[in-house]
Write a protein that binds this DNA or RNA. Structure first.
Lengths: 251, 251
DNA sequence: CATTAATGTGTTATTATGACGCAATGTAAT
DNA sequence: ATTACATTGCGTCATAATAACACATTAATG
């Protein structure tokens, strides 16, 4: 908990934090995992601090696991945010009192903070949004309906989505966001949602299959209206290969 | 100077620094600006610390200006490096003594540091590599001949170049690296050097002119062996437009 | 059993790319 | 001066990638 960290703040990097933009996909919506601590009236990105004996990537993984309960997730650093006033007056006396943090110790929190942004892609269906033992609400929220966030978290979220959009042209995506078996229309919806743009069904199929990362299964989706679409899975080996080498070289 | 910063370390973000990979282009070589402080046997990237009352971007600009003397430069944050041991045992007692830094104050330097990486593209011809009043050697070094660097600076440099290679597909480049007037073969050499790959002359011309950011001048390069190539300049307005909107959308 | 709203599988025109050919130009050698 | 040579400028052609669209197929629904 926050109080434990502050009471032992010498074990953490001062003035430096991590914030995670955790993306999931459900009901044809790109969802973001947001949290709201008691007493707060705004939502925030899940974040944390950096133990002095942990790599920042490790600290980011810790943040992610503590909120989602899953491991082996796609996690990527995308930017660091360091405007002087980004956390100005974020913790006031009343909040510190409420959190039972001594005024002296509280100064550690009140200093200027720089935060390192990570974004994660996770399988919505595997995540339990509300792990026990935390005094906070954790919720998946459609990225188009994100309410006002604390500090510069809105800017961080936007930047994460921008990065994701750009990286969509450089790497395959979906393995981390979709269940093991999925349909092409589902994958297309994912792309359309991220890009906020309609794509042509038939051109999408051609382009996505040409990448060579999909395995067509001998199985159709059941319980659907209209024609049952075919199920696909990712060929993990080829997927990872393309992830490493990138696609769309350009030059 | 370093001693001044350490003596007033309460004015700087603790455990956080900035390192800049400054690229220039000259003699068909991609150059990197490296520095070597007295007494050190390894080179390092120009870096600095972050005043508590300055945005990190501002602090990066300061680092850049103090080393190159130019303003209005292309500067971009590309990654943050935070392995636990990245600066382990970098400053030892002897070095601190030499720098006339008290042992107590020196502890500020010995803690674990996270560094934010920026890369810059500058016009080689406009930079004075050795600004006066600094007890250090500043030098342009061909990126293929970079000697051993301190800490993880090699990793930072490699990552900067990787980023540059990727961004070459997303934005035009050259405005910041070439003189005002340049030839197509020069621009091609720049691309080839960054990508470490030969490109076809004729296809390059077609692709680069199709972007619509070049103005063909009514002037040829003089004093050259063989046929004199035509001079071009960038159409800054269109260049900035493409910079903003990006090229090669992909999806 | 026809309707409907999806999916699966094409075609065609246009554009971008990769791999070249060849003439023009200016320096350097004879 | 004439010629050789390296380099530039401006093409062509075959192939691949992309955009736009047509039509048959499928399964739930009334």
């Amino acid at each position: 908990m926050l109080k434990d960290i502050i009471d032992n703040n010498e074990n953490y990097q001062p003035g430096l934090s991590i914030d995670c933009v955790i993306f999931g996909f459900h009901d044809n919506q790109l969802k973001v995992l947001l949290i709201k601590v008691e007493r707060a009236n705004k939502w925030s990105l899940p974040g944390g601090f950096i133990p002095v004996d942990q790599d920042i990537d490790t600290a980011a993984i810790t943040v992610l696991n503590s909120r989602t309960g899953v491991e082996g997730i796609f996690l990527r650093q995308f930017a660091t945010f360091g405007k002087v006033n980004r956390n100005h007056q974020h913790f006031d006396k009343k909040t510190l009192e409420y959190l039972q943090i001594e005024e002296e110790k509280g100064k550690w929190l009140m200093r200027r903070f720089v935060t390192i942004g990570y974004y994660a892609l996770v399988d919505f269906s595997k995540i339990l949004p509300n792990p026990t033992g935390r005094m906070e609400i954790v919720e998946w929220i459609d990225h188009k309906e994100v309410p006002e966030l604390i500090l510069d978290h809105r800017e961080i979220l936007d930047k994460a989505l921008d990065t994701l959009r750009i990286e969509l042209n450089l790497m395959p995506i979906g393995y981390n966001l979709l269940p093991e078996k999925f349909t092409i229309p589902e994958l297309q919806k994912l792309y359309e949602t991220i890009l906020d743009k309609k794509l042509d069904r038939r051109n999408f199929l051609r382009k996505i299959t040409n990448i060579g990362i999909l395995t067509k299964l001998d199985e159709k989706k059941s319980n659907v209206a209209h024609k049952a679409p075919n199920l696909y899975s990712f060929d993990k080996e080829k997927y990872d290969e393309v992830l490493k080498n990138g696609l769309n070289q350009g030059w």
